[in-house]
Design a protein around this nucleic acid. Structure first.
Lengths: 122, 122
DNA sequence: AGTCTATTTCGATGCTTGTCTATATGAGGA
DNA sequence: TCCTCATATAGACAAGCATCGAAATAGACT
């Protein structure tokens, strides 16, 4: 049964490790699939805002309750988005007492940024 | 008649113009929506490969036929993906004789890269 | 005009996804 | 142990999307 496939956290892109900028050479299918997963995660307005909330928060850590309050969405919906961001390696979470704190994985974001970096306008 | 709505290219993100890195301040809803449109476009493996093919091609220009050949997909499907990339401002196209040539819009890619740029790991 | 080739648009289809409500889990305190 | 608060999971539903084949458009050549 493949029913659970969607929720199995795929190990997030080591594939990007030393990837050259987009413009150097065409991405092969496997690498493109791995990178596209992350972009797809960022391709939702709510998730993008969540990332920016976490990234811009002093201390680099945000409690779920802080995020939920920033949106007009149900708590499970926010939880779902957090899971997506975590599965692609953009966020990590840690439970302390009753609260769960999320923080950014700068490496993932940095790799994306480097990948998109355009060498020069020529 | 609104039949043509779908093909009207929304003017692509001037909103990003001087946007600070993601980590500076949380994106407001409008800006997040605009940026997410571009990330969503990049969130498909085929489209990501198309962008990288165009970006890495000498001369910076690629004929549709060159792209079609790189995939096991129907030509209309490729055309659809090209349209998506064009609508969000990642590519432009120009017709010369029978062929349509696509080229990258480095500005858009650069803005995304800058947005994702993480200041430092602290 | 007519025809060939390159590309886009149309309409349909099946899979994916964002959202909800309801329920479960987990941790702290009476 | 039981209750309450914070978060996650399950299941369902509507909207969105990638893909296809078929038809339409656009140029170039005869």
């Amino acid at each position: 049964m493949l029913v659970y496939m969607r929720s199995v956290p795929v190990e997030p892109l080591e594939i990007l490790e030393c990837s050259p900028p987009l413009a150097r050479a065409p991405l092969d299918a496997a690498r493109a699939a791995a990178v596209a997963r992350v972009f797809k995660a960022l391709g939702d307005p709510v998730r993008l805002r969540i990332v920016s909330i976490v990234a811009s928060h002093a201390g680099g850590e945000v409690c779920v309750c802080d995020i939920t309050g920033a949106f007009d969405l149900s708590q499970p919906t926010i939880s779902h988005h957090l899971k997506v961001l975590k599965d692609v390696g953009l966020l990590t979470s840690e439970r302390r007492a009753s609260w769960v704190h999320y923080r950014l994985v700068p490496k993932t974001l940095g790799e994306l940024s480097a990948l998109l970096g355009v060498p020069a306008v020529a």
